[in-house]
């Protein structure tokens, strides 16, 4: 018995060491690019261009951030994205919760069929052109509505919310409320919503991130510079390397733009990731919970 345990111990030790090496390697691979981007964003243009940056800022400078925060393109995009995210996420969450509760009442006629209609959209859709024609016919081109209405209910998120309500709010509670003359709408507002804090947090997170990151709809439907969301501006600067000098107000920075082009990009990447990095620690536990609820009934 003793011998046996000893044998297991040494063999496990080897396994644990290998495991530790593998997960640490992966951990570093994920972390290092992020550290590099942050370090480069605080370095001087020359240091980045000369490839001197590895782990920490070289020739510390804030030029990149100064340019980014003095750039009207970026600021307008940031404001617009905040607006689209706030309005969009509100619509998403309200509609999804209403539908999710209603769809738990499967004993009513037609509810299962309606659920199927929602689920079906996960696997089949009209595609780019029919959607584009629809948005054009509804006269939503170049308006905020084109950003927030298509995709207002995501079937996957709907399933998460519905599963949560089904498993956390007992049927008996609703039946008792019904006895007392409480209708479904009142029950939804007074009982279901207050008890659904966790799943609402998950929905806010999933929809919020999707709205904040949304690029393709913005590219298709917005063509007025004043309406551009942040991802469009990011695309122009990061990927097409077009920074419009007239949108940089500080004349000194205008001169340097070519020299610090890379630093600007790194600073911009950090700024774009900042909102999510800031709220991430607070929502992390809800996020894992959400993925788990979603996995119960995929």
């Amino acid at each position: 018995m003793k011998k046996n345990r000893k044998k297991t111990g040494s063999s496990d030790l080897l396994f644990y060491s290998i495991t530790g090496v593998i997960i640490t390697a992966f951990f570093l691979i994920v972390l290092y690019p992020v550290i590099f981007v942050i370090a480069a964003s605080f370095s001087s243009g020359d240091a980045v261009t000369a490839g001197k940056v590895f782990l920490w800022p070289v020739e510390f400078s804030l030029d990149g951030y100064k340019t980014v925060f003095n750039n009207t393109q970026v600021l307008t995009g940031f404001q617009n994205s905040c607006l689209y995210m706030l309005v969009g996420t509100t619509i998403n969450v309200v509609l999804t919760m209403c539908a999710a509760y209603a769809l738990t009442r499967v004993e009513l006629p037609g509810i299962n069929k309606i659920m199927f209609l929602f689920t079906f959209t996960m696997f089949f859709s009209g595609g780019i052109i029919p959607n584009y024609i629809l948005v054009r016919n509804l006269h939503m081109m170049n308006t905020m509505w084109a950003m927030v209405l298509p995709g207002a209910i995501n079937a996957y998120n709907l399933i998460i919310a519905r599963t949560f309500i089904q498993s956390n709010i007992p049927r008996e509670l609703r039946e008792a409320a019904e006895m007392d003359g409480c209708g479904d709408i009142k029950f939804f507002l007074k009982i279901v919503l207050p008890l659904s804090g966790a799943v609402i947090a998950v929905l806010v997170l999933f929809y919020g991130v999707a709205n904040w990151n949304s690029y393709f709809n913005a590219m298709l439907y917005l063509n007025d510079k004043e309406k551009y969301s942040l991802p469009i501006v990011l695309k122009q600067i990061l990927i097409s390397s077009q920074i419009d000098p007239s949108t940089v107000t500080d004349p000194e920075l205008q001169m340097q733009i070519a020299r610090i082009a890379n630093v600007i990009k790194y600073a911009l990447i950090v700024v774009a990731m900042l909102p999510i990095a800031l709220i991430y620690p607070f929502i992390q536990k809800y996020f894992v919970k959400g993925v788990m609820i979603g996995s119960i009934k995929g």
Partner: peptide, 13 residues
């Protein structure tokens, strides 16, 4: 959580 645009920007940098 990194958006596609930023992700591609990171890859290119």
């Amino acid at each position: 959580f990194i958006s596609t645009v930023v992700m591609v920007g990171i890859i290119m940098q």
